[in-house]
């Protein structure tokens, strides 16, 4: 009996956690997204009043509509913001992969004593606030910043490059910020790969390049997929980086959400943006989970 109870508790705790911290906020946001804007406190209607009873509840439901969503779909700003976010997230994930794979590969091939130091080096930036690190890039990228000074000093350019407040700055910011999330899972898969597998491939007639394609890459795939999701998901909803580095011309979902919420005080539209963002991310998350499960089944 006691064991049964304990098991029950073990199951209940995570579900309760999920209910309180995920499902409840989700339904509140969903409800606000279906409400209408109002000049009131809180700035939307209807508000749910339990004292009105069943009739009150029916009236409450009947006042909910998809107006905010229709607005999102018809206003090109939001459509553009969505596709711009998608583009930035996809491209920066790809760029992060291009940078991270050689890094992870080099780390996995480093001598034993050096590896912990290299891993430490990848993790070290987390010890400083994310905000400060992104802000530091302003100092590097702006017209009189370190990068431009350096390039002018070497004579490569004569006029400072306009990097700040362009999408390029956003890509740099995202790739920089999320690089560890790409490096670490790839490193983990490469590091446990048996060197003799490559030798076996070469012994059976592969060139080194071919062995890389046929053995290293397929075996690193789980790490690559995990890394891509870990970068893509936060990049999609990114707010701080486009805000600090992207300037007014860079449109992203996170930024429009912030504007609606704080500048326009349009909570229903802001909530609708949040819901759309969430649903966009649920798809890759589910795929990711599936992948992880399948891998666990494969036992490797």
């Amino acid at each position: 009996m006691a064991a049964g109870l304990r098991r029950y508790l073990l199951i209940v705790v995570p579900y309760a956690w999920l209910l309180v911290f995920f499902l409840a906020p989700f339904f509140i946001v969903l409800k606000i997204s279906l409400s209408d804007l109002a000049v009131a406190m809180p700035p939307y209607t209807p508000t749910f009043d339990p004292s009105a009873g069943w009739e009150g509840f029916k009236a409450f439901i009947s006042q909910l509509d998809f107006e905010s969503y229709i607005f999102l779909a018809t206003d090109s700003l939001y459509v553009n913001a969505f596709f711009s976010s998608l583009q930035i997230a996809v491209l920066s994930t790809f760029l992060a992969l291009l940078v991270a794979f050689p890094m992870a590969y080099g780390m996995a091939r480093a001598p034993d004593w050096l590896r912990p130091l290299l891993v430490m080096g990848v993790i070290l930036p987390f010890w400083t606030s994310f905000l400060i690190r992104v802000y530091a890039w302003v100092g590097i990228l702006r017209s009189e910043g370190l990068l431009n000074q350096f390039l002018i000093w070497t004579g490569i350019i004569s006029e400072p490059l306009q990097i700040m407040n362009t999408p390029v700055a956003v890509y740099i910011g995202i790739v920089y910020s999320y690089l560890p999330f790409m490096v670490l899972p790839i490193y983990a898969t490469l590091e446990k790969m048996d060197e003799s597998l490559l030798e076996a491939a070469i012994d059976l007639g592969c060139s080194r390049v071919k062995a890389f394609w046929l053995v290293t890459l397929p075996l690193a795939m789980p790490g690559i997929i995990a890394g891509c999701f870990l970068v893509f998901i936060p990049a999609m909803g990114e707010f701080v980086i486009p805000e600090l580095l992207g300037g007014s011309r860079t449109l992203m979902m996170g930024k429009t959400l912030w504007n609606e919420f704080f500048s326009n005080r349009d909570w229903p539209v802001a909530s609708a943006v949040a819901i759309v963002l969430l649903l966009t991310l649920v798809v890759p998350i589910v795929i990711f989970q599936r992948q992880a499960e399948r891998q666990q089944e494969a036992g490797r």
């Binding site: 048996d194 003799s196 597998l197 030798e199 076996a200 491939a201 070469i202 012994d203 059976l204 007639g205 592969c206 060139s207 053995v215 397929p218 075996l219 490797r300």
Partner: peptide, 19 residues
């Protein structure tokens, strides 16, 4: 180079490709 030698090796750890 090893991939051109008419010699094959059976590895101590077998080195079978897990994928």
């Amino acid at each position: 180079p090893p991939n051109r030698r008419p010699v094959n090796m059976m590895f101590q750890s077998y080195a079978l490709f897990p994928h």
